[in-house]
Design a protein around this nucleic acid. Structure first.
Lengths: 344, 344
DNA sequence: TTGTATGCGTTATCAA
DNA sequence: TTGATAACGCATACAA
């Protein structure tokens, strides 16, 4: 009878046995340890391949306290900006030998908290998070930070660093540029559909908007400023309200592209001419804005650059940690750019 | 001096010590084991909360050989269909107490193989995969299957089950419906832009297309059938070729929406009237098809249904495995539906 | 109902 | 350069 195997899986013990070596040597060979004879190493690698060996990540992680795995939490992977950032992060991390666990919070704080727990429980080496719009208390991330795991917030980040690194777009400038563009295009009555002020994103974009208005002496009509979840329906009701009254706007800054698209659809239904009667600016450069007629002017956020920056910073942080160096990385602001299209 | 702690993290030993209980009892309490006094259980849970304890997933997984983690590989998370499927899967799995590791292959077979290795190495309890268009050899999944881990292929799946479960859309019917719709709309000269025949998706969609043509006695012009990667640029060159010759098509079935959009853009540039001169059908019901002018007729694939089905089957498989039952799940075909819009 | 003892597969320390 | 041994944190068979 053949020898009974407890598990289907071959382990370093199986390799050791086959090669009449100790498990320690196998482990060293597999980890490219310097003190292994070249000949031994190749023999081990060959046998590993032959036995179809795969390292047990859990055993390795348990022992070494390193998982080579990074956790990522985003509100929604289907948002164009996030999808691009994630893809960039994953590709870059892969080159550095790290894996990425991607999680969606669905913009739910409860889910975000649960996911943070799970990722902590999985002992990820670091965490990258774009928070929900409603995350004002960042306490659920403290556990990781206290444990010395690098935490990077991007896009939707706390106002203070909390011991984490913050990488975000230049939202103030984005808000400023879009309002300025409308002003320079001759708009006098400018409305603004923005998101919940619980998020720094919209605080900053709105601040930029107001700055442009003020600098150029354009009066702000408080009834024309909306802070609400940036859904299609909310945008529709906002624009409907705007066009109910006697004076109607001749320009509108929306803080995401879905809202801009909703506004544009409203104008089509109502026979309002864009850009003649109303000029529209979106935010994010979602592919839909380029495809719709008329195409929509929007703010490019350079997701690939954001992703590259995140990984660069992360690798630095991990390397520093490895060497026992503790450096606080100051917040990084990534640039934005106005993309002019037919809606203005 | 206070006692030195090796690690930052509290373990069940810390809870045990604090409560003057054995680690075994703590473990049982934490796992809702029946043989624990109610009072003990609450005491343990309280202390766990107080000590900010989080289970070490790796230690737990190493011991129990279960990770409560499911791996997922998709070509691109940014594709609308996949983003929807993933979201549904993640939400459903979360309810069942499973976590999801999402990975992107970027439609690269090399990456897909590497990711499969990593997920195996992480000892996921099961794997869900939508393969690349170029995956014809599914050997890299064998390791998991041999190890008794359920593997579910969806969307892009092998022709034979290989011991895995297959869940896919009714591509034949999708191809059939779109061609039939063009025929019923009066098209006589129908072109077809499809994907690489290495993928079952396009084999089936094309077969459906041909079936509709044949059944209705419409002649197929072999020069008008394209099998190529379904990129924007490839679609542009295909449609350009179609409109070079004397006879031009009056209808076109494209096997994804990006191609349909490219075709539509070509017609706009060339002044070809849609739907009068050319009718266009896409595939997938990407949100862009609803937004573009004219909106594009396409095939709905019900991603939420697909996601629900995948999780239902997966939970069944895991439960059966738990109980030692070995059932082969036959392939499941999910329905598709034609969405009529302005492009036809 | 609780405690004791053992092992999951790997890595690290020490000794050879 | 390699081997023996212990330890990572947890879950479970067995004993009490």
């Amino acid at each position: 009878m053949a020898k009974e195997k407890k598990s289907q899986q071959n382990t370093i013990l199986d390799i050791a046995e086959a090669l009449k070596l100790s498990p320690a040597t196998i482990s060293r060979a597999l980890n490219n340890h310097p003190y292994v004879r070249e000949k031994t190493k190749t023999a081990v690698l060959d046998m590993a391949a032959q036995l179809n060996y795969r390292r047990n990540q859990m055993a390795s992680g348990l022992r070494s306290n390193k998982t080579h795995t990074i956790g990522l939490i985003v509100p929604r992977i289907s948002m164009f900006f996030h999808a691009e950032v994630i893809t960039t992060i994953q590709n870059n991390l892969h080159k550095h030998g790290f894996n990425l666990i991607i999680c969606q919070s669905n913009d739910s704080l409860t889910m975000e908290t649960a996911l943070t727990e799970i990722l902590f429980s999985s002992r990820v080496d670091a965490l990258i998070a774009a928070c929900t719009l409603f995350t004002t208390d960042f306490g659920h991330f403290d556990k990781l930070i206290e444990d010395g795991k690098p935490v990077i917030f991007y896009d939707r980040a706390p106002m203070t660093d909390h011991g984490a690194t913050i990488i975000k777009g230049d939202d103030f400038n984005g808000g400023y540029l879009s309002a300025l563009h409308l002003i320079e295009s001759g708009c006098k009555r400018i409305a603004h559909i923005s998101g919940p002020l619980t998020s720094n994103l919209y605080q900053n974009r709105s601040a930029g908007f107001f700055k442009a208005m003020e600098t150029n002496g354009i009066e702000v009509n408080r009834d024309w400023i909306f802070h609400q979840e940036l859904t299609h329906d909310n945008a529709l009701s906002a624009i409907a309200k705007l066009f109910q009254s006697g004076t109607v706007p001749d320009g509108i800054c929306t803080d995401n592209d879905s809202s801009a698209i909703a506004v544009l659809q409203f104008t089509k239904e109502q026979g309002i001419k864009v850009p003649e009667d109303l000029k529209i600016v979106g935010y994010s450069n979602d592919p839909r804005t380029a495809i719709i007629t008329p195409s929509i002017t929007t703010i490019e956020q350079f997701p690939k650059l954001v992703g590259d920056t995140i990984v660069r910073v992360l690798i630095d942080l991990l390397r520093n940690k490895e060497e026992g160096i503790s450096v606080v990385t100051p917040p990084i602001i990534t640039p934005v750019q106005l993309i002019k299209r037919m809606s203005t």
